[in-house]
Amino acid sequence: MSNTQRDGFLASNGLSLVLLLLFLAFLVGQVLTGYAVNNEERLAQGLLAEPIADYLRSGHFISATFENWESEFLQMGMYVLLTVGLRQRGSAESRPLDPAQEEDRIEAGPTPWLLRAGGAWRWLYANSLSLAYAGLFFLAFAGHAYGSWLNENQQRAMEGQAAQAFTEHLASAQFWFESMQNWQSEFLAVLSIVVLSIFLRQDKSPESKPLAAPHSQTGT
Rank of each mutant, 00 (worst) to 15 (best):
M1A: 06
T4Y: 06
T4D: 09
D7H: 06
L15M: 12
S16P: 06
F26E: 13
L27G: 11
V28D: 13
G29I: 08
G34L: 02
Y35R: 03
A36L: 09
A36I: 05
N38E: 15
E41S: 10
L43H: 14
Q45I: 02
L47P: 02
L48H: 10
P51G: 09
P51S: 06
I52S: 08
A53M: 09
L56P: 11
R57W: 12
G59W: 04
G59A: 05
I62C: 04
W69Y: 14
E70H: 14
F73Q: 02
F73I: 01
F73E: 03
L74D: 01
M78G: 04
Y79D: 05
L81K: 02
L81C: 07
L82N: 07
V84E: 13
L86C: 12
L86F: 15
R87V: 06
R89T: 12
G90F: 00
S91G: 05
E93C: 06
S94F: 00
P96S: 03
E103M: 09
A108N: 12
G109M: 06
P112V: 05
P112E: 03
L114G: 07
L115P: 01
G119L: 06
A120E: 09
W121Q: 10
R122G: 08
W123F: 13
A126G: 08
S128R: 05
S130V: 15
L131W: 06
A132T: 14
G135D: 07
L136Q: 08
F138M: 11
L139T: 10
F141S: 08
F141D: 02
H144D: 08
A145Y: 04
A145K: 04
A145C: 12
W149V: 01
E152D: 11
Q154A: 12
Q155E: 15
E159S: 14
A162G: 11
A171L: 15
S172A: 10
F175C: 00
S179Y: 10
Q181F: 10
F187D: 03
L188C: 10
S192C: 14
S197Y: 01
S197L: 00
R201H: 04
Q202S: 10
K204P: 05
P210T: 04
L211V: 09
P214T: 08
Q217S: 11
